[in-house]
Design a protein around this nucleic acid. Structure first.
Lengths: 342, 342
DNA sequence: ATAATTTACGTAAACGTTTTCGTAAATTGT
DNA sequence: ACAATTTACGAAAACGTTTACGTAAATTAT
């Protein structure tokens, strides 16, 4: 026994009216008498009729669903962001289809094709760390599929963007360490070609510069997988720690990097903040429970998700392509705790 | 300019063949000559044709999508579980639509209606803490919508279930505390009517009993929101801590309860494990990084997700309703660390 | 050589909606 | 009283597939 929902035909037969009359009655058309409307509405409610969204999608050439492409659900930044997306999408009657790249370009490609062929009305995308070429996205965008980029920004695409003030976050974080008299501050970044990595690097550089400290390329290391793979992080920090002049503080430029550095220091018995000052990007809501509590740059992920979803839906529902595009930049929330100095 | 995907008609016109011939060629029908098939396939590939899934859904009366109802995405257990669901669903060509209840019965109801009317082929559900009546689920299930229950089990529904050995997890956790010579072990549980809460309570009780300790009702407290709301947790622990004979150890029966207890102890400067032994359910992957490191009962969330998805898809794709139903019970992974005693 | 069968394709219906167009019946206007 | 208009509805097409059915042409069988 397959699940069968009520349809217009059922109401039509039951009331001896045509299908089109039923449809119009339920859509409150002026062409239908109040008496008929009432009768139809009552019966529809009785059998719990809901328009079949698949049929409506086919007819309207829109599915009322939006696709989301992110790296990992099991990442506090993204899961909070999805919450934001979800909250506005559901309110506006849109379905959300979430796909993960796990930081793989290949999966990003296949997810994107999947979403496009699934007739989503638009797409929210934060590219994978592996993605260096944006042709797949630009191609679909040019064919008319609405996109909103968030977090990791795609170059060369004319659309709305929701991003974060990575420069300022990194600048203030570095500055916090400087203020606490750390002298040799290293930076551990995500994949070097990502927009966010470059912006964070600039913030870090500028803070050093403003403090009169010479920028030293050897104090910067990148992790292609954004900190997901512990061994990659370990290798990078090991290198830093074996420099002739090793760092006395560390700025970590992603969520997973921050937690894996803490794991590293635990393993190596490196005391934070005495031996190594630490401040990093993180949206983990228990960063304050660690010992020492971790100073973090927090991103307003939920609000960013809301904003991205709103922009996308606006794009989808507008008749004409907008003349100019918004670039919403969210400010960092600096949560200064123990790890960045006492 | 709206996004327009290639369709059969485009190929049909281009090659001067009928739409049905194109369709059959692409579906490798025996009725079409190899020569034609080749020609069609090549052109289809050239224009990147993909069948419109909405049209296919309407035709086939199935959408190749499954709905998931959980409490919170931003909860490590659920996000890991979704990863598992996602991994098998995508392999089998199914879409995953995730909805959150935020532990509200009302939202569960509306999400379920939304999914059912969205023509999902089946549903994976872990009920909200507020849900005490399962009629909405049973009703849809009786109308033929396939369900698989996981984690929090629904009573009175004849279908596959994917659960966790809550009894054993609670038993072993309590036992661990007993082994370390804690005498007055309290339990902090999720909403009392949930299946998981009752099973965990039984495990806790049995461990006490086997150790010859009298079960004391006043040592058990429940949090209706499963630990989501700090004040609710605080109130419950405050009560425990103001008992004449206050507990010397605590068993927390959910993810959020465990982290919020740690927050409570931090605030109140209660030393773990000296003043209060602690062991709890948690799937956080940084429980080992806290000081002290937290002993946890870990649930194989990813595997549970995979299993649930596999069972659901099997249900969806089987012609006849299965004669008997599986009840997969996953064993706990006990990660004993410092918080439960030295 | 002619009948029977197979091959290779086209036509049309169906899935459940919405909407354009058409039209009897009822109402209004003069 | 008759024309003009409005009211209230039905028939049918369209969205993009898949597939049952029909059928010329090609092949095989006798």
């Amino acid at each position: 026994m397959k699940y069968e929902a009520a349809k217009l035909k059922d109401i039509s037969k039951a009331l001896g009216l045509s299908i089109s009359t039923i449809s119009r009655a339920l859509n409150d058309s002026y062409e239908i008498s109040e008496k008929t409307k009432k009768k139809v509405r009552e019966y529809a409610r009785e059998i719990n009729y809901r328009p079949n969204p698949v049929a409506v999608s086919l007819r309207d050439k829109r599915s009322r669903s939006i696709g989301v492409i992110i790296a990992e659900i099991a990442n506090s930044f993204f899961s909070q962001m999805i919450n934001g997306v979800d909250s506005v999408a559901h309110n506006r009657g849109y379905n959300v289809i979430i796909t993960q790249t796990h930081e793989s370009y290949h999966r990003e490609l296949s997810n994107l094709n999947f979403l496009a062929s699934s007739s989503v009305d638009g797409c929210l995308i934060s590219v994978s760390t592996e993605t260096e070429n944006f042709d797949h996205i630009i191609h679909l965008h040019e064919k008319g599929l609405p996109f909103v980029c968030f977090d990791r920004i795609v170059e060369g695409i004319k659309t709305h963007k929701v991003s974060f003030d990575n420069f300022r976050g990194a600048y203030e974080a570095t500055n916090e360490l400087l203020k606490n008299r750390y002298k040799r501050i290293a930076m551990l970044g995500n994949a070097s070609h990502l927009s966010i990595t470059q912006e964070r690097l600039e913030g870090y550089k500028n803070a050093l510069e403003d403090a009169g400290i010479l920028f030293d390329q050897s104090m910067v290391r990148y992790c292609l997988h954004g900190g997901m793979i512990y061994d990659e992080v370990k290798k990078a920090v090991d290198e830093l720690m074996h420099l002739r002049k090793k760092p006395d503080a560390l700025f970590t430029a992603s969520d997973k990097l921050t937690t894996n550095i803490i794991r590293y220091c635990n393993n190596r018995k490196i005391r934070i903040p005495e031996k190594l000052g630490l401040i990093g990007f993180s949206n983990l809501d228990i960063a304050d429970l660690l010992t020492p509590s971790i100073s973090v740059i927090r991103q307003p992920a939920f609000e960013m998700g809301r904003s991205a979803a709103e922009l996308l839906i606006k794009l989808i529902e507008s008749k004409h392509p907008p003349v100019d595009f918004e670039n919403k930049v969210f400010p960092p929330e600096m949560l200064i705790r123990q790890s960045s100095g006492l």
